[in-house]
Amino acid sequence: MLFFSYFKDLVGREVTVELKNDLAIRGTLHSVDQYLNIKLENTRVVDQDKYPHMVIQCVDYNSVFSFCKLSVRNCFIRGSVVRYVQLPPEGVDIELLHDATRREARGG
């Protein structure tokens, strides 16, 4: 739940959501719910060099319908398929996160 409250504060900022299938999508965080389902706006798939798996997928699919051409207006991502969310540095309050994670680790 730490992350739910935390992500809510990031609404309106640019984040990169990396999925467990190695697809990474960058966009403006529109909303997040308690299951960490994430809605992005103005999305685009980012930096294929950084995500070689996606390039492999493109090669294998061998068609214009492949992941790397995924360019969508708005996007709903199921919380359970998210591996990482990359945050904007200016949106990270390290002190606050530090305290919150410590509290979480203690069981609060």
């Binding site: 999925l19 051409k69 969508v72 207006r73 996007c75 709903f76 199921r78 398929v81």
Partner: peptide, 28 residues
Amino acid sequence: LSLHAVSTDPEAYPSPCLYTQIETEAED
């Protein structure tokens, strides 16, 4: 359904569509 998205980019698909990714039993 891992994700769904409104796709209006003709480069992605010629017709505007709702794009979905499906989680399958089979490993990648």
